[in-house]
Amino acid sequence: MTGSSTRTILICSGKGGVGKTTLTANLGIALASQGVRTAVLDADFGLRNLDLLLGLENRIVYTAQEVLAGNCRLEQAMVKHKLQPNLALLPAGNPRMLEWLKPEDMQKIVGLIQPHFDVVLIDAPAGIEDGFKNAAAAADEAIVVTTPEVSAVRDADRVIGLLNTRGVEPIQLVLNRVRPKMMQSQEMLGVTDVTDILALPLLGLVFEDEQVIVSTNRGEPLTLNGSSSPAAIAYRNVAKRLQGEEVPLPDPTKQRRGLRAKMRQLMQTKLF
């Protein structure tokens, strides 16, 4: 836990592959675009990917490992985004760091970052192992990312339990890869099902969006290129809600009804 006025937010998930790192990259860019000095810290030392998603992999010279060892200054290791100067990345070090890294090491890294930024986003490893516990030790708030699948929600519940025991608050939820049609046919857990099980306030709903895959492969977060795709809008709205703006959450049950109503209206226009 920290005593700084800088908001230090852990972005975590129980299950891998639910879009946690993608959210971190897009949320970081979205906050920076809103004028928030934002640092993103890749704490997934075993599976480092945040640099790829931000398109910064070729600009890394030093990592958190060299900072901790005293081999470079923090300023030398932080990689500023060329297209969004309010955002900087501190890359994860060698996977061997997992063998010796302790919670106090993460607290030291975050303590060095905080004076220079308004928000620090920590991309934690998925699961509840030591890597997650180390990352959680340096955070005040948390965003839990899950998809509306039974296994992902169960794993998220375990993560929330650990965060509660560590006094991390607030803990908020982002529900990712939402498919309204599957929710309506009850082939996927509904939003209320997930929020009832996890008992967390809902910070954002991100609809399934092919553009996420395209942008990830290009190393260009959707929130960087002005995209108006459903996921890009959702990421920006998460950033706004984090800043205290009241942005209504979309209702997945009305998504397809809205399309049907629009189609009916178009047909009536053509007929008359």
Rank of each mutant, 00 (worst) to 15 (best):
residue 41 L to S: 09
residue 41 L to R: 00
residue 43 A to R: 00
residue 43 A to W: 00
residue 44 D to W: 02
residue 46 G to N: 09
residue 46 G to P: 03
residue 46 G to F: 03
residue 47 L to K: 03
residue 48 R to E: 01
residue 48 R to H: 10
residue 52 L to C: 07
residue 53 L to W: 01
residue 54 L to T: 04
residue 54 L to V: 10
residue 54 L to D: 01
residue 54 L to F: 14
residue 55 G to Y: 13
residue 55 G to A: 13
residue 56 L to I: 09
residue 57 E to C: 01
residue 58 N to D: 14
residue 58 N to Y: 15
residue 58 N to V: 05
residue 58 N to L: 12
residue 58 N to H: 15
residue 59 R to F: 15
residue 60 I to F: 04
residue 61 V to Q: 12
residue 61 V to W: 07
residue 61 V to F: 11
residue 62 Y to C: 00
residue 62 Y to H: 14
residue 62 Y to Q: 07
residue 63 T to S: 14
residue 64 A to G: 11
residue 64 A to E: 04
residue 64 A to V: 09
residue 65 Q to F: 11
residue 65 Q to M: 15
residue 65 Q to I: 04
residue 66 E to A: 05
residue 67 V to D: 11
residue 68 L to Y: 11
residue 68 L to G: 01
residue 70 G to C: 12
residue 71 N to R: 15
residue 71 N to C: 06
residue 72 C to I: 14
residue 72 C to T: 15
residue 72 C to E: 05
residue 73 R to P: 02
residue 75 E to F: 07
residue 76 Q to W: 04
residue 76 Q to I: 08
residue 79 V to Y: 14
residue 79 V to A: 06
residue 79 V to G: 10
residue 80 K to P: 06
residue 80 K to R: 12
residue 81 H to Q: 05
residue 82 K to I: 14
residue 82 K to N: 06
residue 83 L to A: 13
residue 83 L to E: 10
residue 84 Q to M: 11
residue 84 Q to A: 11
residue 85 P to N: 11
residue 86 N to H: 15
residue 87 L to A: 01
residue 87 L to E: 01
residue 88 A to L: 06
residue 88 A to V: 10
residue 88 A to K: 09
residue 90 L to R: 00
residue 90 L to H: 13
residue 91 P to K: 00
residue 91 P to G: 03
residue 92 A to N: 08
residue 92 A to M: 05
residue 96 R to I: 07
residue 96 R to A: 11
residue 96 R to Q: 08
residue 96 R to Y: 10
residue 96 R to M: 08
residue 97 M to C: 00
residue 97 M to P: 00
residue 97 M to V: 13
residue 99 E to P: 04
residue 101 L to Y: 08
residue 102 K to A: 07
residue 102 K to F: 13
residue 103 P to M: 07
residue 105 D to V: 02
residue 106 M to E: 05
residue 106 M to Y: 10
residue 107 Q to D: 06
residue 108 K to P: 01
residue 109 I to W: 15
residue 109 I to C: 08
residue 110 V to M: 12
residue 110 V to Q: 09
residue 110 V to F: 15
residue 111 G to N: 10
residue 111 G to L: 09
residue 111 G to S: 10
residue 112 L to K: 13
residue 112 L to R: 13
residue 113 I to T: 06
residue 114 Q to S: 13
residue 114 Q to R: 07
residue 114 Q to H: 02
residue 114 Q to T: 14
residue 115 P to E: 02
residue 115 P to H: 02
residue 116 H to Y: 12
residue 116 H to E: 11
residue 116 H to W: 15
residue 117 F to G: 00
residue 118 D to K: 04
residue 119 V to H: 06
residue 120 V to G: 00
residue 120 V to P: 01
residue 124 A to I: 08
residue 125 P to V: 08
residue 126 A to M: 02
residue 127 G to R: 00
residue 127 G to W: 03
residue 128 I to G: 05
residue 129 E to H: 13
residue 129 E to Q: 10
residue 130 D to E: 04
residue 130 D to F: 05
residue 132 F to I: 02
residue 133 K to Y: 11
residue 133 K to M: 12
